[in-house]
């Protein structure tokens, strides 16, 4: 019985290794990514849930493809991204909430 369980675990942990997910603020300019999910962000405090929902309303939904257009001057902040054909400016704090997986481009 035990020997049957162990390989299953090995397979399960191998899946996330293939489709590496990272935070949007770790991506490079020009990268094409797909949104995996939205994570809580301590910086927003009690606002955090509202920020998540607003992001979703604007189209930052799991599964949505997203392109990184550019960065601001200081500390690569804010980020400009395109999602569903609409461009948005996000700060690193918002971007860090968004977990993505790479479609093309490096991170």
């Amino acid at each position: 019985m035990n020997s049957a369980v162990v390989p299953n675990i090995a397979i399960a942990s191998a899946i996330p290794a293939k489709t590496v997910s990272l935070r949007l603020d770790e991506c490079r300019k020009g990268a094409q990514v797909r949104i995996v999910d939205l994570q809580p962000q301590a910086l927003f405090g009690s606002q955090d849930e509202c920020v998540t929902l607003r992001l979703k309303e604007l189209g930052f939904l799991p599964g949505a493809p997203l392109k990184i257009i550019g960065f601001g001057l200081l500390g690569s902040d804010p980020l400009a991204v395109q999602v569903n054909g609409t461009k948005f400016a996000l700060r690193r704090a918002e971007a860090a909430k968004i977990r993505v997986e790479l479609i093309s481009g490096s991170h």
Binding site: F44, Q47, R54, F88, A93, E94
Partner: peptide, 12 residues
């Protein structure tokens, strides 16, 4: 030190 998001649409 409460943060608010920027979330600014950049229109065409």
């Amino acid at each position: 030190r409460e943060h608010y998001p920027l979330l600014l649409e950049l229109p065409s």
